[in-house]
């Protein structure tokens, strides 16, 4: 049990930074977006890790609820919204990349910058 107690949060930090690295350092625009969605997914883990209560179950009241322990519903609600925001950003970002490809015939940041300098 001991090791799990903070392991979630460390993995959150590592995933966040892997995503961040891909967004900032990669030159390919699609790869940047993949990194960006990784970056956003890491945050889901942060929130969801706040949910569970020792000995609890998902907060759905089926039969007799007396004496049972339930986990926190709020992080789930917030992350449902965040997932939707993530996919919306992704869709819009990909549409922009498609247009960039049509306008510049490239999806590499350095090549686009080069073309703009002319």
């Amino acid at each position: 049990m001991e090791i799990l107690e903070l392991y979630n949060y460390w993995v959150f930090a590592i995933l966040l930074m892997i995503g961040f690295y891909a967004v900032t350092a990669k030159l390919n625009l699609v790869k940047k977006l993949i990194g960006l969605s990784l970056f956003q997914s890491a945050v889901f883990l942060l929130y969801i890790s706040m949910g569970p209560v020792e000995g609890g179950t998902a907060p759905i009241f089926h039969a007799d609820v007396t004496g049972r322990v339930f986990s926190n519903p709020l992080p789930s609600v917030l992350i449902l919204t965040a997932i939707v925001v993530g996919i919306s950003t992704l869709a819009l970002g990909l549409a922009i990349i498609v247009r960039i490809k049509e306008a510049y015939d490239s999806v590499e940041e350095n090549e686009i910058r080069e073309l703009d300098r002319q």
């Binding site: 350092a25 030159l27 490809k101």
Partner: peptide, 13 residues
Amino acid sequence: LTAENERAGTAGR
């Protein structure tokens, strides 16, 4: 619609 492979690598690593 774009490209299947990354061409350039990284910058400002």
